[in-house]
Structure formats: structure tokens, C-alpha cells
Amino acid sequence: MTEGSAITDELRSMIGMATEPVIMEVERGAIRRYADAIGDPNPLFSDVEYARNSRYGEVICPPGFFGWPLKRGGMMELLGTIGGALFRAGVPRILDGGVDYEFFLPIRAGDILTSHGKFADFREREGRTGKMLFITMETTYLNQNGDLVAKARSTLIAL
């Protein structure tokens, strides 16, 4: 365990660091498999005829599903870079703390989404077992028309 703050100059300099955009294809089959894995029989996710006659006009994604990458951006690299800095800051264990989504528009099968991720912020807290850093990663999702469909704020806990 390090003395003093786990917020190093290296970490501070990384705030705002962004990934290359990730391009994702939203396929009907991928949506159906995701809904099936959740155990959600909602026909809006799986029944093309039903969805066509709904106000959405097409099968839509359950919350939290954004299709499959056609082009992978640099999120893993960014997390690796941050992970290295956290290790050097004396907080090497990283846990998934949770996620907050805002949904602006429905995501339909056939959409092509572009997501941009960035290292948005961090704050330090004294936990029961020592220093903890709460790291916020922010991801925005745009559809093929350039409209913002969703925003995610994920929390990583480093200790």
C-alpha cells in the first residue's frame, strides 16, 4: 500500500484520454441471442413481424446492447494504459463498479453505431482496506445519422 494519495501525476495527465471510435453493427440475430441470454421473451427484441407493426417499425435492442464491433477501437488499449498507471500508483486490483446509462433514441436492427470512449474522471476514497480510486469511463453512442442514441458512464474501482 502506498503512503499518501494514489493519484499520481501520471494518472492526472491521462484524464480526457480518448479511444479511437468503435464501429458497431446491430444485427437482428445478435439482438435475439442477447435477449435470449437474458431470458427476456419480449417480442420487440425477437419477433420481426411483431416489431414491424409496433411504433418502432423494427426489432430494437434491449438496454445495454449495442451490436457487434465491425471495427474495434482502442478501448482495451486505453484500459491497459490506465491499468499500468494504476499499478504504478499502488492500486493494482481493478473491479467493475457499475454502469449508468442514459438512453436517448431506440436502437434498431440495421443501425450502424459509432462509440467514443474516454477516461473522464477519478476520485479517491479511503476504503476499509486502504486507498480506493473510483475511475469514470464515459462512452457515447451515435447512430448512422449522427444522432446521439445513448451515453454510458462506467465506474472502475482500483484498490
Partner: peptide, 24 residues
């Protein structure tokens, strides 16, 4: 995802889920 399923079942097809967040 399961919390999402519960909410979408509850709000029905004319309801809109605007925000959902949870801590693990």
C-alpha cells in the same frame, strides 16, 4: 439486463426507459 427486463415489462410498449444505472 435483468433490471432492464423488469422495467420494460412494467412500463409497457408506450413507456420509455430513459436512464438505468446500477452498482455491482
Amino acid at each position: 439486463g435483468l433490471l432492464g427486463q423488469m422495467l420494460i415489462d412494467w412500463i409497457g410498449e408506450d413507456g420509455v426507459l430513459k436512464k438505468l444505472g446500477c452498482s455491482y
